[in-house]
């Protein structure tokens, strides 16, 4: 697990960076207006940026997808703003999930993560308020409600990496 440093930049936004194994500091700045900036520090002067690239919203999303980043946490940030302390997210069930073909009850989601499954999206249809007897299928999207850390745990649980 990478240790991320979080530094507020007053008037600009937030900086997240870490010392990569390749020896350079790498980071992302989230601007208040939604732009993202990626930067890499110089080797001879580790306090300074060698290069930084500003990405628009859609570009940042494309790069995140390429890197296989978690779209979960990113979406969480936006939904978090709606209600303090309560988050909701759509978690796509990965094909490799151990719960494909298993009962919803077998996830023990509420006991393990404190979040509730409020719906399952299947194709164009939604199954609202599913009971523990519902069987997960490939391509399901699970809608969960709970605290933000709980939802991160839920996503990990569904991936099979709790």
């Amino acid at each position: 697990m990478v240790k991320l440093d979080e530094t507020p930049l007053p008037g600009v936004g937030m900086r997240y960076d870490f010392d990569s194994r390749s020896g350079k500091r790498v980071g992302v700045i989230t601007h208040r207006d939604g732009r993202r900036e990626i930067f890499v520090a110089r080797r001879d002067d580790p306090d300074a940026c060698a290069e930084s690239i500003v990405l628009a919203d859609d570009e940042a999303e494309a790069v995140a997808d390429l890197l296989g980043g978690s779209s979960v946490t990113r979406r969480l940030e936006t939904s978090m703003q709606d209600i303090q302390g309560l988050a909701m997210d759509w978690l796509p069930l990965p094909d490799t999930s151990p719960f494909v073909g298993q009962l919803l009850g077998s996830t023990m989601m509420r006991t393990r993560t404190g979040t509730s499954i409020v719906a399952v999206m299947r194709g164009q249809q939604a199954v609202p308020a599913p009971g523990p007897e519902l069987t997960f299928e490939r391509g399901d999207v699970v809608v969960v409600v709970g605290t933000a850390p709980g939802i991160r745990q839920a996503a990990a649980l569904l991936r099979g990496t709790p």
Binding site: L9, G11, V12, R15, I29, F39, A41, D47, A48, C49
Partner: peptide
Amino acid sequence: SKVLSDLGRLGNRETPVILGVCV
């Protein structure tokens, strides 16, 4: 702030200090 963003120095380690002083 203009110098910092135009010269791509927002990621620099000293930048939070500069912005903090301004605030």
